[in-house]
Amino acid sequence: MRSRLPVVLVLPAVVGLAFLLVPLVGLLVEAPWGTLPAQLLSAEVGQALRLSLVCASLATLVCLVLGVPLAWLLARGDLPGRGVLRALVTVPLVLPPVVGGVALLLVLGRRGLAGQYLDQWFGISLPFTTTGVVLAEAFVAMPFLVISVEGALRAADPRYEEAAATLGASRWLTFRRVTLPGVMPGVVAGTVLCWARALGEFGATITFAGNFPGETTTMPLAVYLALETDPDAAIVLSIVLLLVSVGVLAGLRDRWIRA
């Protein structure tokens, strides 16, 4: 027989769930459902939604390529000052995103520390481009991936890696065939968090990449501007973004996370 769930855990859990969900219910109750189909089919919404999905996915890809090795280095590398490094990686989490955007401008902008050379030598200008959106989103979202992968790596049993090493596997082979499969749930969870954060990114994006329809106007930017003149449209846009992200995440969950 299963014992009863302890009230001391269940009560705060239910309150927590309500706290997270009630604002969403508010959004759904206030929504002008009549105009939803028309909004969904409008060219601007389609454009913003497509851009959001593409940029968030590309940003997640950037985070995976750079973030997983970084997490490995933080968890396994024998670095001096690893604790400080670990804290620094989380800086984009505590930084207000708008400040993150300003920081990106100061480094990669046309007059930025590195950006001025990109502009002079290669004619590359990152602000106000779709690439800029991807960079801003990756900057803000990468810590989510690094933290969850690093946590998984530190919880993993290092003896499997040691066993692989004694059998003559190189560190790269060990990483690919032993370490990575072992921490896959952590990588998937981090990827999902990272993608979700990138999809909702607003502050760093509008500051670094600006706002231009078709180029840099992602859904959160479209929502913010719609709020200026037409709150109903803003609610509809929010719901579209909400439905798409919940749909994608639920789909992923069924396919990947259970495995």
């Binding site: 300003v102 401008l105 100061l106 902008g109 046309r110 007059r111 602000p127 106000f128 509008i206 500051t207 990449a209 600006g210 706002n211 231009f212 840099t216 930017l221 913010y224 501007l225 200026e228």
Partner: peptide, 20 residues
């Protein structure tokens, strides 16, 4: 032919101040 249409006037001004 704008490259960006910002959410408020101070955001526009910041882009000018930074030389972007």
């Amino acid at each position: 032919a704008p490259d960006t249409v910002e959410q408020d006037v101070k955001a526009v001004l910041a882009k000018v101040s930074l030389g972007e």
